[in-house]
Write a protein that binds this DNA or RNA. Structure first.
Lengths: 124, 124
DNA sequence: ATTTATACTTACCTTTTGGAAAGTGCCCCC
DNA sequence: GGGGGCACTTTCCAAAAGGTAAGTATAAAT
């Protein structure tokens, strides 16, 4: 499917913003964002514990992406065994705040969605 | 990775909300949400045109999910050739509003993220 | 000397996602 | 009676996501 879109308000910004949101709004990023919002500064292993179900691979990968996007800082302490601290930048905190709205929406309307699903499933 | 999470504020609501957000916050859902917010009532083909790059398969699939979740209504007019209208429910509109914050955040901070990325890539 | 702890990295492999394209149903129009 | 339009549905297949598990580095502790 192609052809020109409906509105001409945004030229290529829309494209970029969508890409950005897609990158930023995935499952693990949101969960890490939440953990760091609550936990302040956390080390790798603590994050692993705070985000149930995440694998080491995805934890590392997601943290790196977030660091790259400037959402958090990564501080390596030159000690052994290694210790690495993560904490949100103001950019990351801002994103967490913005997501707060979605979070709250989800929390308050969870019930309605569940019944909507049941109705739909019964109907079909 | 497993073990108990950091905070005990939310029992299993967190789980449900996360699942819900993951379902609701994907690329196509957001784009369709946006199209319908701007376009009001739209038919299948119009949505296909309004969301550039989506395939018929994903359009149908995403619309069905959204209908199931109660985010939009699907009205089949018994005419030939077929005509099906989609439009957001108040639930869907609420979600669109909630996402508005994220959208705006992304729009305003796009520049900062891009420079953060360049810095990171240069650093490594 | 071996074990332990931490924060990764890498290789392999399964599962999921999603695109392309062809098929379906149905009536109107020429 | 052949073609066209719309809204799907289905099948096949390639690409990407992501899990598991093993490996790496280092120094302190036993």
């Amino acid at each position: 499917m192609s052809a020109p879109p409906l509105s001409a308000i945004d030229p290529r910004v829309t494209q970029l913003v969508n890409e950005l949101i897609g990158r930023v709004a995935d499952k693990w990023t949101m969960l890490i964002l939440e953990a760091l919002t609550e936990g302040g500064t956390m080390r790798f292993s603590a994050l692993g514990r705070a985000v149930p179900g995440i694998s080491q691979k995805m934890l590392t990968q997601t943290l790196r992406q977030m660091e790259r996007d400037g959402l958090l800082t990564r501080t390596v302490h030159p000690v052994i065994p290694p210790r690495v601290d993560y904490h949100l930048t103001d950019l990351g905190l801002g994103l967490a705040e913005a997501f707060c709205g979605v979070w709250q929406w989800a929390e308050t309307h969870l019930g309605r969605i569940e019944t909507a699903r049941r109705d739909f499933d019964a109907r079909t």
